[in-house]
Each structure stands twice: as C-alpha cells, then as structure tokens.
Design a protein around this nucleic acid. Structure first.
Length: 108
DNA sequence: CGCGCGGCCTAGC
DNA sequence: AGCTAGGCCGCGC
C-alpha cells in the first residue's frame, strides 16, 4: 500500500494523519499499518523516520498514556510541551488523558 | 540467508 | 497497584 512498498511508508502516512490535539498509541498505529503486534516496529519507524516528513512523532505515545523516553526527543519537556501547545491535557500523574485525546482514526 | 535491535504490548505475580 | 518476563514484527548489516 505504501508508496515505497514498505510497512514504514504506511506508518508514516498514518502518523502524518494524526490531527493536532489528538494522540495515538503505537499499537493502534501498528494495527492500522497492518501489524497488530508490530508496535515496536512502529517505534522504529518513528526513529528511522526522515525529519523532512515532519512527522508528529510527539503525538505518538504508548498505551499507558506515558510519553516516550527522554533520550528520544532530547527532553521529556520537549514532547509534553509540544503536546500541551497543541491542546493536549495531562493528568496529575504526568500522563496524557488518552480518554480525551486518543485518536480514533482518520475520519469517524 | 541469519542474527540482533528497538520510542511496545499483554499477561502474570 | 506496581513490577517482571516473554513475545511479536520488520529493517539493516
């Protein structure tokens, strides 16, 4: 399906479609890409994702609603700040309110 | 052709 | 409620 004929391309497409103020989980994206159990592959795709694509990788979080490790964005505040700037709300625990910002898909 | 890596997920204690 | 262990998937060398 992907232009490059690779699963990564599919992941990039999906992540790029995540609207501001919404977040998606790796597992969900993986399922959309056709790999329900390939959540880790999604994480790798993000890390290997070309920066010129401007993929909102900061909108991708784990099912726990916790942000990715610090070393990924170069600072936990970096990701949280961007998400908050886009309208994402955080819980007292520091996690994201998945129930409120969880992306349900391209269009529903 | 085969092995290892990774921003995970789920289940069990 | 929190932590540990195992498994899954695709890419790169």
């Amino acid at each position: 399906m992907g232009p490059s004929g690779g699963v990564f391309a599919e992941i990039y497409e999906i992540v790029a479609q995540i609207p501001p103020g919404s977040v998606a989980t790796y597992g969900q994206i993986a399922a959309m890409a056709g790999i329900p159990r390939g959540a880790r592959t999604v994480g790798w795709a993000m890390r290997q994702s070309p920066q010129h694509l401007n993929l909102p990788c900061h909108r991708v979080v784990n099912s726990s609603g916790a942000l990715s490790p610090v070393h990924v964005f170069g600072g936990e505040e970096a990701q949280s700040a961007r998400l908050e700037a886009e309208g994402i709300t955080f819980l007292p625990g520091g996690g994201i309110d998945m129930k409120r910002h969880l992306w349900r898909g391209p269009v529903r």
